[in-house]
Amino acid sequence: MDTELMLKVYPFFLEAAWVTIQLSVLTAVLGLICGALGTAARLSRLAVMRFVGAAYVSVFRGTPALIQLFILYFGGPQIGIQLDAFEAGVIGLGINAGAYMTETMRGAIISIDKGQREAARTLGLSRWQAMYKVILPQAARLMVRPLGVNLNMLIKSTALVAAIAVVELTYTAQRYIGSTYKPFEMFLLAGILYMIIITVVGKGVSWLDRKVQIT
């Protein structure tokens, strides 16, 4: 193993890791927003909204994220959407992650006992109040852990933007593999940084999960 080379190039990997972190955070925020909107649509009283929500989930979970990214980044200009690679990465991956998060959030909400909603409605709360004050606080506790799994997948999916030349960890590894012919060393450098990011986030999620449990 060529440790000398690794020591020489690791600062570039650190910079790239910072880009991966930024991508992950922005994508996660957008994903949560899309997930919340998707969940609202899927649980709506209007059949057309339910259809839109279901179609969103089905299409974005049913096609490769890489293709979605390519449609947005390369195909976007044809329909008047001009984005730089980083923006396209965040938006493409965020909308994709939102589809998975929709299923997570909806699953948690519909698993709350029906009696809770009925009781809240009987007590005179409006539909919205019942959701906001009774159902959601309970469902939120159930969401933390599965959303953590979504988040883990999301962080790894940020590697896809290497294919549209965003200089993040995987792209950097790819470039140095090409120029140094040391695939194992470069994999190790990028891999360690990914593992650190994912482990820290994983610990954060378990901490939050413990924190929100009642017992």
Binding site: L160, L169, T170, A173, Y181, P183, F184, G191, Y194, M195
Partner: peptide, 21 residues
């Protein structure tokens, strides 16, 4: 554990170029 914690794309680069090496 490492394979579950790193992106598939990165692993593909390792396998493709690693085997050549």
């Amino acid at each position: 554990w490492v394979f579950m914690g790193t992106p598939l794309l990165l692993q593909l680069f390792l396998i493709y170029f690693g085997l050549v090496q």
